[in-house]
Simulated assay, not measured.
Amino acid sequence: MITGANTGIGFETAKLLAEHGATVILACRDTDKAAEAAARITASVPDSTVRTLRLDLASLSSVRSAAERLRADHPRIDLLINNAGGVRPRYAVTEDGFESTFATNHLGPFAFTGLVLDRLLAVPGSRVVTVSSIGHRRGTVDFDDLNFTRGYRYTHAYFQAKLANLMFTYELHRRLAAAGAPTVAVAAHPGNARTEFGREMPFPVRFLMRPQLRMLTWWLMQSPQVAALAAVRAAVDPDARGGDYYGPPGRAQFTGHPARVESSAASHDTAAQLRLWQESERLTGVTYPVGEAVPVVPS
């Protein structure tokens, strides 16, 4: 199952997995766009099995409804790819009262994963892959103001959420390993991809993402087909270990085929990981069927 799979990296990830025999579920906010994406994949891969699921990660009621439907239809899930994300250039809150970028990129995926995790625990070798960003390196998690009520900058909100994706992955990995679970948690980042992600961004960002500029910006941005390979490798590499992080290698990690890469020191702060987990449980009301791995006292 792939969230945000109707366009961009999510679509290319779904298409590639379908080409190699996977039954894929496109979990998207817009059901019409999801249906169109499914039709495009089946037209390209006639023997594929592609299904859709309505999921709005900015709404906890939608998250719960989608999880219930998925659980009803699928007693076993091999792979969950938390791909969907986004950023609001202007401050907005969800129906649950959360800042929209944090809710869509972290709280929604945290809640959804927890609600369907038992379906993955039934499958040896199953994986939870969460897509982060090289922007996480510029992120900090402000536990005193996770919802940016004291001032909003979209870059800070996005970088915080992408750092949270990695902290979530590493904490989930520890809990799964301590429980002896057959499921592993892995993360990936796509580098800089030329997709619709920047459609709401300021003009300079939208300008650089134009396909017409690809001959000039090849070193800065790559196609969604190549960018999707990081999540796909995290999903299927037989040598992947829990807690691995895949993305374009090199100093800047902007472009290139994926390899194991290192994340920031902040992402490995175990005390902060635990605190974020506890805050996420409190805010979403979702607890996981795997307990705390090692007691960590927040500093």
Rank of each mutant, 00 (worst) to 15 (best):
T3G: 05
A5W: 01
T7E: 15
T7N: 11
G8D: 03
I9A: 13
I9D: 03
F11W: 06
F11K: 01
T13C: 02
T13G: 00
A18P: 00
A18G: 02
G21K: 01
G21P: 01
A22D: 06
A27V: 12
A34Y: 02
A37P: 00
A39D: 08
A39K: 12
I41T: 06
S44K: 10
D47V: 13
T49K: 11
R54F: 14
L57Q: 12
S59M: 06
L60P: 00
S61C: 05
H74W: 15
R76T: 12
I77F: 06
I77M: 09
L80W: 08
I81V: 14
N82V: 06
A84N: 03
Y91C: 14
E95Q: 06
G97R: 03
F98Q: 02
F102Y: 01
T104R: 02
H106S: 04
F110A: 02
F112A: 10
F112G: 00
T113I: 12
T113N: 10
T113C: 14
L120G: 07
A122R: 14
R127W: 08
I134A: 15
G135K: 06
H136G: 02
G139P: 00
V141P: 00
L146T: 07
T149V: 10
Y154F: 10
F159A: 11
K162E: 07
L163N: 05
N165F: 05
M167G: 14
F168T: 04
T169C: 10
H173Q: 08
R175C: 14
P182R: 13
A185S: 09
P190T: 13
G191R: 00
A193K: 01
A193D: 01
E196Q: 07
M201R: 04
P211H: 05
R214N: 05
M215F: 06
L216F: 15
W219Y: 04
M221E: 07
V232P: 01
A234S: 04
A234K: 00
A234Q: 01
A235L: 07
D239C: 11
R251Y: 07
T255A: 13
P258H: 12
V261R: 15
E262G: 14
S263R: 12
A271T: 11
A272T: 10
A272D: 11
R275Y: 11
E279C: 13
S280T: 07
T284V: 14
P289I: 11
P289M: 08
E292C: 13
A293N: 08
P295N: 12
